[in-house]
Every structure is written in C-alpha cells, then in structure tokens.
C-alpha cells in the first residue's frame, strides 16, 4: 500500500495527542518531574507557573553576608576582577590588611555580564555566588548594581539560609 509509511507516522502523532492528556510530565507541586515520559503536557505556562531552579543555576550575581556579623564576606582581594572575561566588576577596599580588609564599594555591570560563573570559582572567601534570579528586566535604570543591591540580592537568594546548600 502506498501510504503505509504516512499512516504509520500519523498513528504516532495520534498516540501522542491522546497521551498528552493521560501522561504526566512537566512540573507537579512546584517540583520538576524527572521521570521522562512520552506523554503529558510538557509546556510550562510561564509566568503563571515557574520551574524551580537547580542549586547550581547561574543567574545574577549576589554578595553573601557573614551569618554572625551580618557584614559582607568580601575582602576586596580582586580575584574575581581578574577572572572576569567581560571586565564587568570593580571593587574598592578599605584600609584594613589581609583578612580584615573589607570591601567598601563593589559594582557589577549587569548588562555586560555573560553569566559564566568564573568570578564565583575564583572567590576564596565565599563572598559571591550566582543567585537563581533570571528575571532581570527592570523599568528602572539599574544596569550597574552596587554593593548594597548585591547584598539585598544575597539576602533574597542565599541558599545557605533555606537549608538547600550544596557542597562544592
């Protein structure tokens, strides 16, 4: 029969059409379903539904605080600045020496960042991390973030506080 191949192909499409109402895939109770299946509605209706991000997800940069003193961990050592391929970071330290030195100012050019994560790998003081924030459009002109903004981002997205910390 001439149209055998076509009919076979369309039967697969029909099977998928039926399975998309019976199978299960996508997200359930805010968790991704990791079990792969051919059925189910795969589409996630963003912005009504959102996929939870993995702990390693590389979103906008954030600064972390020392949990005891509440100060920024950053010692203005400048390792992240040399690691950044886009030159989108600057830092200024205070007069302290060694580990007592603290960052006074830090800028992060959000519009230049390519989210490669090299700055986080370079950091030895657990001062910076990539947050899981990916909704970065803004109606205000905040394309360069200062230390205050980065710390606020850290307060919001720090995974250590929510107990989901993952060993490196």
């Amino acid at each position: 029969m001439y149209f055998q191949g076509l009919a076979k192909g369309l039967s697969v499409t029909l099977k998928h059409f039926i399975q998309s109402y019976t199978g299960k895939t996508g997200i359930e109770d805010g968790e991704r379903i990791t079990e792969p299946s051919l059925g189910g509605m795969f589409t996630v209706e963003y912005p009504d539904e959102k996929l939870p991000m993995y702990p390693r997800f590389r979103g906008a940069l954030m600064h972390l605080r020392d949990p005891e003193t509440g100060e920024a961990n950053c010692t203005a050592c400048g390792l992240c600045i040399t690691a950044c391929p886009q030159d989108c970071l600057t830092v200024e330290g205070d007069d302290g020496k060694g580990k007592d030195r603290r960052a006074e100012a830090f800028t992060y050019g959000l519009s230049e960042c390519i989210f490669c994560g090299l700055c986080v790998e370079a950091c030895n003081f657990e001062a910076i991390e990539m947050s899981s924030d990916y909704e970065l459009s803004s109606s205000e002109r905040e394309i360069v973030w200062d230390l205050e903004r980065l710390l606020a981002q850290g307060d919001k997205y720090d995974r250590r506080q929510s107990g989901e910390d993952e060993e490196k």
Partner: peptide, 22 residues
C-alpha cells in the same frame, strides 16, 4: 533513565518519519 527513554523516542521518531512517502 533518560538514555533508555531516548532510545524509545528515537524508535518512535524513526517509525514516524523515515518511511513517509511524501
């Protein structure tokens, strides 16, 4: 799990497309 699933899927893709007369 994904690898074995991909095998199933490729079989299905093969059935659906390869011998299509058009």
């Amino acid at each position: 799990k994904l690898t074995s699933h991909l095998k199933t899927f490729t079989d299905e893709l093969n059935t659906m497309l390869t011998k299509n007369e058009i």
